[in-house]
């Protein structure tokens, strides 16, 4: 059982580290600010939460575990709110998402259903 928890913890930490680096690469490579938010989303959800859960299995059942779970809950609840506030600020501040095909100038005010390819 202890070995199983150890292996699980290892796996979660390694997956989380990989996802962190992938999200960081995404934040550097992706073309515009709205796309980079997806990279930040990977860092927040899969990266940080997976690493913290891996640490949870490492700590055994104690008050440390509960604090880690509390941090995960905080991140999960606050990350989408912060991202949405930033996206709204960017949209109102004049940043326009870079799209594959040209669409209307202001996507917020148009009634058309879809602009994807």
């Amino acid at each position: 059982m202890a070995l199983f928890l150890e292996i699980l913890s290892w796996g979660l930490l390694i997956i989380g580290s990989m996802m962190l680096i992938i999200g960081g690469i995404g934040m550097v490579r992706l073309p515009d600010v709205f796309s980079r938010m997806h990279g930040a989303g990977i860092i927040d959800t899969m990266g940080a939460c997976t690493i913290l859960l891996g640490l949870t299995f490492q700590a055994g059942l104690s008050i440390v575990t509960l604090k880690l779970v509390l941090i995960v809950v905080f991140i999960v609840f606050t990350s989408p709110t912060a991202t949405h506030a930033l996206a709204r600020a960017a949209l109102h501040g004049g940043a326009r998402p870079q799209l594959d095909e040209p669409v209307e100038d202001d996507p917020a005010s148009q009634g058309e259903a879809s602009s994807k390819t």
Partner: peptide, 14 residues
């Protein structure tokens, strides 16, 4: 843009 910077700082804080 300034939004890229805010996004970077947010991820940095996490």
């Amino acid at each position: 843009t300034v939004y890229d910077r805010i996004l970077g700082i947010n991820a940095f804080g996490t």
